[in-house]
Structure formats: C-alpha cells, structure tokens
C-alpha cells in the first residue's frame, strides 16, 4: 500500500501538484488519469523518489520515504518496478541482458538461476524468441513487454507504469493492459498506472484518481466513473463520441 499525503511540487514559479492526498491499494491496479500537464507524471516521479516534493509525505507500507536514509531509499527502490513511457531499455544490452540486469546487480543467484528467472518472466510477458535481440530490433509493443519483464523480475512490491499504452495500436494496448492486471493479481503487487487511455480506464481501473491542474478532482472505480456527475471527469472521459454513446447506453440500461 502506498499512502500519499498532501503532496506539493513546484518547478520554478509553476506549481504542478497542489496537495494530492490518496491511497494506492495493494493487489489492485490503481490508475492516475488526467489531461496532459495535469501532474500525473510528476506525481509518479515523486512516488518513485525521482522528484522531492516540497510538502507532504509518501509512505510505503507505513515507512515514510522522507525519513529513510539514502541507502534505505535505494533498498526500497529495489522493491519497485517501473515501466517508463519510452520503455527506457538499455540500448547497449540485449533483451535478455536488460531483464537480467537487476538480478545481476542485486542478487547472489547463480547464472543458471538467473537464466531460469529471465526465461520465466519473458515467457510470462509472451516474449520467447527475443532473448538475443537488441531493443532497436524489436517493436514498440515488444519493448513495453520487455520493460514489464524487467520491472517484475525482482518480484517487486510496487509496480509503476507511465503511460504504458502510448504509441501502441489498440490491440497491443489491450494486451499490455491485461498483462499488467494479471501480473498485479498474480504477484499481489501495488500497481500504479499513469494513463489517459480510456480503454485502460474501463478495462483495468480498479481504483482511479483523476487529476486536474495538480488537484485531485475525483476518486473512484471504473464502475463509479460511469455514474459520476463530476463535470471535469465527464468532460475528460467522455470527450469522444464512442464513450458518450457507451455512457448513454449504460444510463438507458440502468433506467
């Protein structure tokens, strides 16, 4: 569980986060949604410790991040997995090298044990024939799957995904969404996904927080988002004709 309490973050004169308070539940796919520039990525990077908030606190299973020493922070980070928007794979390493990297860095496993674990996670993300390929030799969807494999190879307690579907075709995007949700359940991870993909919201949003101009405007589930009367949320979620129709059908069905 991750508890975020009254987080403020500014860059120069621009205040990006204005007092965000929420809880991300264990074993659930938690979504942060909002328009571009609403502060989603900054909130995610604050949770990862890449940005230091000016005010407020973030607690991981009860441990306040700001109170941890530098070494304790690095130890905590070994319990985190992150899927970056651009995958952030090490381009000088093969797919196998990328996935094996955290194991080589932080475990005392033998080469055979590491190889078994890498084979397992690559199979888990449906990548069995790409071990020796370099990131530049595989598609965007495959790169995302490698990034997920690298993020879960150490059995993390917390998984963060920054727009995991960006730049992917709808079918691959759904595959990635399902994969994230399955992994969350399978390994009981606290997963936080930053997205503005409405399919993700409807499919995997067990808990959703909606940010607008650095403020938490709404919080709920993918079931509740259909019912909400919050104007900012409905304007954002139902901005496309397709979703307007889906909502209309839902309301008619309910009546």
């Amino acid at each position: 569980m991750i508890e975020v309490d009254n987080i403020h973050k500014s860059f120069g004169d621009t205040t990006v986060l204005k007092g965000i308070t929420t809880v991300f539940d264990e074993g659930k796919t938690n979504l942060i949604i909002g328009q571009s520039g609403s502060g989603k990525t900054v909130l995610l990077k604050c949770m990862l410790g890449l940005f230091e908030p000016e005010e407020g606190s973030i607690c991981y299973s009860g441990n306040r991040y700001a109170d941890l020493s530098l070494d304790e922070r690095r130890d905590l980070r070994q319990e985190m997995g992150m899927v970056f928007q651009g995958s952030a794979l090490f381009d000088s390493m093969t797919v196998e090298g990328n996935v094996m990297f955290p194991l080589e860095m932080f475990t005392k496993q033998s080469k055979a044990e590491m190889q078994d674990r890498v084979d397992f996670v690559l199979e888990r993300v449906n990548l069995v024939d790409a071990h020796n390929k370099y990131p530049s030799e595989i598609s965007g969807g495959m790169q995302k799957r490698v990034a997920i494999a690298r993020a879960i190879v150490m059995n993390p307690k917390y998984l963060f995904c920054d727009e995991p579907n960006s730049g992917l075709d709808p079918k691959t995007a759904i595959l990635i969404d399902n994969l994230i949700q399955e992994i969350t359940k399978e390994f009981n991870i606290t997963t936080v996904v930053n997205t503005h993909d409405m399919n993700s919201v409807m499919e995997i949003g067990e808990k959703i927080i909606f940010l607008k101009n650095g403020i938490k405007e709404w919080e709920g589930t993918n079931k509740e988002i259909f019912k909400t009367d919050n104007e900012a949320v409905t304007n954002f979620v139902y901005s496309s004709e397709l979703f307007k129709k889906v909502r209309q059908m839902y309301i008619e069905e309910r009546n």
């Binding site: 990077k45 990862l48 410790g49 890449l50 690095r74 130890d75 905590l76 980070r77 070994q78 985190m80 992150m82 970056f84 928007q85 651009g86 952030a88 794979l89 090490f90 381009d91 990297f101 955290p102 860095m105 932080f106 963060f160």
Partner: peptide, 14 residues
C-alpha cells in the same frame, strides 16, 4: 534523455 538513468535510479543503482 531516454530515461535510462532514471531507470537505473529507480532500480536502486547508484
């Protein structure tokens, strides 16, 4: 630029 350094930091690598 490609966030590979962020990826190292997130993993807990100095």
């Amino acid at each position: 630029v490609t966030e590979q350094i962020d990826a190292l930091e997130v993993m807990g690598v100095n």
